[in-house]
Computed example of a mutant assay.
Amino acid sequence: MADTTHQADQGPAAGPGETLRTRSLGERLRRWRNRLVRSAAFQRWAAAFPLTSPVARKRAARLFDLCAGFVYSQILAACVRLKLLELLDEAPRSVAEVAQACALPEDGARRLLAGMAALGLADTRHDGRYALSMDGAALLGNPGAIAMIGHHTHFYDDLRDPVALLRGETEDTALSRFWGYARGEAPADLSAAETAEYTSLMSASQSLIAEDILDGYDLSRHRHLMDVGGGDGAFIMAVAGRHPDLTLTLFDLPAVADHASQRMARAGLSKRVSIASGDFFADALPTDADIISLVRVLLDHDDASALRILRQAHAALPPGGTLLVAETLSGVRGAETISDAYFGFYLMAMGKGRPRSVGEMQKLLTQAGFRDIRLKRTRRPLLTQLITAHR
Score class of each variant (00 low, 15 high):
A8S: 15
D9G: 09
G11H: 10
T19S: 13
L20C: 12
R30V: 12
R31A: 11
R31K: 15
Q43M: 12
F49V: 14
S53C: 07
P54V: 12
L66P: 11
F70Q: 09
V71H: 09
Q74F: 05
L76A: 08
C79M: 15
L82Y: 10
L85T: 15
E86C: 12
D89N: 11
R93T: 09
P105R: 08
E106N: 13
A109P: 03
R110Q: 06
G115T: 07
A122F: 03
A122M: 04
D127R: 00
D127I: 00
Y130K: 03
D135W: 09
L140R: 05
A145T: 06
I146G: 02
I146Y: 03
G150N: 00
H151V: 01
H152A: 12
T153Q: 11
T153Y: 03
F155R: 03
Y156A: 14
D158C: 00
E169M: 01
D172N: 11
R183C: 13
E185A: 09
E185K: 10
S200N: 09
S205C: 13
I209G: 07
I213K: 11
I213G: 12
G216E: 10
M226F: 11
G229R: 10
G231L: 09
G231R: 09
A234C: 13
F235L: 10
M237H: 11
V239G: 07
P244R: 15
D245F: 05
D245A: 11
L250F: 05
F251E: 03
D252F: 03
P254I: 07
A257Q: 08
S270C: 05
S270A: 14
A276P: 04
A276V: 04
D279M: 02
F281V: 02
D290N: 02
R308E: 02
G320E: 01
G321F: 01
T322K: 11
E327K: 02
S330D: 03
G331Y: 01
A335G: 02
T337S: 15
G344P: 03
P355Q: 12
R356C: 07
E360G: 08
Q362T: 15
R374N: 04
K376M: 15
T378I: 00
L383A: 09
T388Y: 15
R391S: 12
R391P: 02
